[in-house]
C-alpha cells in the first residue's frame, strides 16, 4: 500500500466521489419523477399516449446505457442539442432509469387492491383525488423496496459517465491509475466508496420502509 500516493490524490478522489453522489441523486430523483409520470400516463392516458410510452420503455430498456450516453453526448450536437459532459451524464442517467422506475411504479399500483379505489369511488371521489390520496401512497409503499433496489443499481451505472469525461469517481480512479500505476490502491478506493454508498442507501431504505409501513401491518393481539 502506498499511502503517500493516496494522500496526494485524496482531494480529487473525494471530488470525484462528490460528483458520483450528485449523479446518483440526480438520476434517482429525476428518473423516479419521470418514471412516475410515465406510469400514471400509461394508466390513465389515451391509447396513442400509452403506445408511444410503451415504445419509449422498450427502446430505453433494450439498449445499453453506454450507447444511450454516446448518442446523447456525441449525437446530440448533430440535432442541435449541445450538452457539456456533466449535464449530458445527468440527463442520460435520468432517461436510462425512467423506464425501470415506471415499471416499478406500475407494479406498485397494481398491488393496491381494487377495493381501495372502489371505496373512494363509491363515496363520489374524483379520479385525481383517488390517485393522490389512495393509489399513490399505497402504491408507493408496495413499490418502495424495488425503488430502493433500483436506485442501488443506479449507483453503479454512474461509473459509465467516465467514458464521456464526467469527472466522477471512476474517472479520477482511472486518472490516478494511469498517472501512478497504483492500480490496486486506486481500485480499492473505488470499491470502498461504492460499498459505503450502497450500504448507506440500503440502510436508509430499510428505515424508510419501517417508518411508512408502521401503521399498515396487522399486529395480532393489539386489536
Amino acid at each position: 500500500m502506498d499511502w503517500d500516493v493516496l494522500r496526494q490524490y485524496a482531494p480529487i478522489l473525494l471530488r470525484g466521489f462528490g460528483i458520483t453522489i450528485l449523479a446518483w441523486a440526480f438520476g434517482t430523483v429525476f428518473g423516479m419523477a419521470l418514471g412516475l409520470v410515465i406510469s400514471l400516463a400509461q394508466r390513465y392516458g389515451a391509447r396513442p399516449v400509452r403506445w408511444v410510452l410503451q415504445a419509449y420503455i422498450e427502446v430505453v430498456r433494450g439498449t445499453p446505457f453506454l450507447v444511450q450516453l454516446f448518442v446523447l453526448y456525441y449525437g446530440g450536437p448533430l440535432v442541435g442539442l449541445r450538452l457539456d459532459a456533466l449535464p449530458a451524464g445527468l440527463v442520460g442517467l435520468t432517461i436510462y432509469g425512467s423506464p425501470y422506475f415506471a415499471e416499478i411504479f406500475r407494479s406498485g399500483f397494481d398491488a393496491v387492491p381494487p377495493g381501495q379505489a372502489e371505496a373512494a369511488r363509491a363515496i363520489g371521489m374524483a379520479e385525481p383525488a383517488i390517485v393522490r390520496r389512495i393509489l399513490l401512497p399505497l402504491g408507493l409503499v408496495s413499490a418502495l423496496p424495488a425503488l430502493v433496489n433500483f436506485s442501488i443499481i443506479l449507483t453503479k451505472e454512474t461509473v459509465i459517465l467516465s467514458v464521456i469525461t464526467v469527472p466522477e469517481l471512476m474517472y479520477q480512479v482511472q486518472r490516478m491509475s494511469t498517472e501512478t500505476f497504483r492500480y490496486l490502491e486506486a481500485n480499492l478506493v473505488l470499491a470502498l466508496f461504492f460499498w459505503g454508498l450502497v450500504e448507506l442507501i440500503s440502510r436508509g431504505g430499510r428505515r424508510l420502509e419501517t417508518r411508512i409501513t408502521r401503521h399498515l401491518l396487522e399486529r395480532p393481539g393489539h386489536g
Binding site: P113, G115, Q116, A119, R121, I123, I134, P137, L138, V141
Partner: peptide, 17 residues
C-alpha cells in the same frame, strides 16, 4: 349521485394508511 349512496363492502375496504 354517488355522494348520497353509501356502500359497505364484504372486505371493509378501509384505507390502511
Amino acid at each position: 349521485m354517488r355522494q348520497s349512496i353509501g356502500m359497505v363492502f364484504q372486505q371493509f375496504n378501509l384505507w390502511p394508511h
